[in-house]
Nucleic acid binder design. Structure first.
Lengths: 121, 121
DNA sequence: CAGTATCCCTCGGGATACTG
DNA sequence: CAGTATCCCGAGGGATACTG
């Protein structure tokens, strides 16, 4: 299980999950497809540029499908693929962990920062 | 569940998980405590600086415990805390997902890159 | 052995402006 | 509406040298 290829693949996915917007976008698409502008409005804080880049990355990895309706003005819908949907489970498990332990983590940080003051600005 | 605080906590954990070394360090400590130099040798590729920084971060979040034995030369052991151990489950689930779907992802990328050549160098 | 301290460079990502 | 193109800054992270 700890082969080289596996490690690379795992780190690859982990960095996807760790980036600032990917998981948020995926979780927004959980229930139904959304248009570019809907995603942009819903996510709040994301720049046009980063939304585009995030969606391209997710599309490239086969997690999100992009559907263009060539009207004018154009309409583009984004939806989770089957693969994208399977990612939801482990990600939500991690999110649940984060939510469930955020108190412990916050307390650990306070303790650490009290012991070692001035290091964390 | 989608309160502001939760989102912050989740993103916080996700960025920990997404950083280059944290998960690797945690998974190395899975079975038993390890010394600084053992971690350094085992992980392969990590710089002394990044190992230190990663361990400090994990310690600050209460995921790893640092034990100094004041001999000369000094000996420092790192071990997972109970909290750190609970993180293992969701992280391993994600790793399993990554391993299980890496073929699909690779194929999706090939397809995407063939359609849109020259964009990814 | 187990770190700190510096230097330096790449990349993530925000702001803004322009286009089919 | 749904993007691309530029510019720019700060964080992440590697290499190297020094220390208790």
């Amino acid at each position: 299980m700890h082969e080289q290829e596996t490690c690379v693949a795992v780190r690859d996915v982990l960095s996807r999950v760790g980036d600032k917007w990917s998981v948020l976008v995926v979780s927004m698409l959980r229930d139904r497809p959304l248009r570019f502008s809907e995603l942009r409005r819903t996510i709040e804080g994301i720049s046009q540029r980063m939304l585009t880049l995030t969606l391209r990355g997710l599309e490239r990895d086969g997690l999100v499908a992009r559907t263009v309706t060539p009207t004018v003005p154009p309409r583009v819908d984004y939806a989770l693929t089957d693969l994208g949907r399977t990612l939801l489970d482990p990600v939500l498990a991690l999110a649940a962990w984060a939510d469930g332990h955020r108190g412990e983590i916050a307390r650990a940080r306070e303790r650490f920062d009290r012991k070692d003051p001035g290091k964390q600005d």
